[in-house]
Structure formats: C-alpha cells, structure tokens
C-alpha cells in the first residue's frame, strides 16, 4: 500500500508548470479556428446547393414533362433512394469486386475500390491510391476498435446493424461512426473530402460484415 502512496506522490510531481502564452500562439489558435469554421461553412453551403439543385431539377422535369434522363446525376434516384445524393456527387453502389480477408463489403462509393486490409483495418479508396492503408486521408476505412478501448458514445446516436451507433464529427477532418455488430466494436471513418453524408456513412456501415479473419488489436 505504501508503494502505491509513493507512486501517487511521484505522479503529483509530473505535471509540468504552465508556461506563458504568447501573442503568436493566441493568433495561431484564432487563425486555425476561423479556418475550420470557414471549411464548415463551405461544406454546408455546398450541401445546400446540391439540395437546391436537386429540387430545381425535379421541378423542371415535372413542368416540362420530360423523361428522367434530363435530370442531372445528383438528382437521379439511386438504387437505395434519394437520400444518398450528396455534396461531392458520390453515391453508394453495390460492391461486386473481390472481398478482402476479415471484412465483406456490401456497398462502396461509386468508382471506389478496396485498397487493402490489415487484421484490424479495411481501406476503401479511389483506384490508384498508393498510400499506406493505415494512412486514412481521403479514404473510407473500417477499423476494429482495440480490445482495451471502451465503447465511445456521443450525443449523435443513429440506428445501424440493428442497434445504436454513435457519430462523431471531427470538423475539417473526418466523421466516424462507432457501433457494436454483436461481436466487435467497429469504427467506420469517412474523410471529409469524400463528401459522404451521415446517412451514407450509416448505409455503408450496414453493408459491412466482419469475419473471423479480422482481429482487434490491443492497447
């Protein structure tokens, strides 16, 4: 017990004394915050523009009594419904290529491929992406959460895999969805540049099956 007390005493001395905050640091924090706010506004504007364009196209088609082929791709209904239209024009399509060990995929963003897997990570990218599969920038990835991690709830619950999952938005970076599939703690992450909507992220996750070949890490 006294050894624990000794360690507790040593731990208390570890905290570094706060240093001064410079004008340059403050200016940098304001600049980064303003930039992130600008990116968020741009994404919202783009999403709103697509929605307006879709509504306008549908109205035009109705008035002119033209066939659906006159509508732009983003306004065309997809095989899973109109909610999959989104800012970057991507839509989810059925995946018909070869599956990778550890994960089976039901849908991918149109034109995307399975880049590769490790025991705990599946990366979905545009063709020709030569980056490491553990570099998640501009990708859609599926990860098994570490066995030591605790399931992470947020204030944005959604229905996925017949249960409740939780969305987390990292502004300017990525959106993640964490859920339990009955056996695994699964995290699906979409980089913001893809423009996937939250609904699409959930829809993609619903098409994922984790097999016995996948293994969660530790630590």
């Amino acid at each position: 017990m006294s050894e624990h007390h000794e360690i507790e005493g040593r731990l208390r001395t570890l905290r570094p004394a706060p240093g001064p905050t410079t004008d340059e640091q403050v200016a940098g924090d304001v600049r980064r915050g303003a930039r992130a706010a600008g990116r968020r506004r741009a994404v919202r504007l783009a999403t709103g523009s697509v929605t307006l364009a879709a509504v306008g196209a549908v109205a035009f088609v109705a008035v002119a009594n033209q066939p659906d082929t006159t509508a732009p791709p983003s306004a065309a209904p997809t095989h899973r419904g109109a909610t999959t239209a989104k800012a970057a024009g991507l839509k989810l399509v059925d995946y018909t290529g070869a599956q990778q060990p550890g994960f089976t995929v039901g849908q991918v963003p149109e034109g995307f491929v399975l880049q590769g897997v490790s025991p705990a990570v599946l990366a979905v990218t545009r063709p020709g992406d030569a980056t490491d599969i553990n570099d998640f920038q501009d990708k859609l990835v599926v990860m098994l959460q570490s066995q030591d991690a605790t399931f992470h709830k947020t204030d944005h619950p959604v229905q996925v895999h017949g249960g409740t999952g939780y969305l987390r938005d990292e502004p300017g970076t990525a959106t993640t969805l964490e859920y339990m599939d009955g056996k695994h703690d699964v995290v699906v992450q979409a980089w913001d540049s893809l423009g996937l909507t939250d609904d699409q992220l959930v829809e993609f996750a619903d098409g994922i099956s984790v097999t016995d070949a996948a293994q969660a890490g530790v630590g």
């Binding site: 905290r15 570094p16 004394a17 706060p18 924090d29 980064r32 915050g33 303003a34 992130a36 502004p171």
Partner: peptide, 28 residues
C-alpha cells in the same frame, strides 16, 4: 497544454497538437 503533456506522458509535440485541436473544437 500542461494537461495534454501529462496525458501524452511527456510528448510535448503531440501535446501541442492536441491542444491546438482542442482549441479548434472550442472555437467552432
């Protein structure tokens, strides 16, 4: 930053990154 340095067990570069990310979230 001091808390971040403790959480990262002395990794000052990572602590600075985490502090910056935290302050971006706060700004938003």
């Amino acid at each position: 930053l001091a808390t971040a340095t403790s959480l990262t067990a002395g990794d000052r570069h990572l602590a600075e990154d985490l502090t910056q990310a935290t302050l971006v979230r706060l700004y938003l």
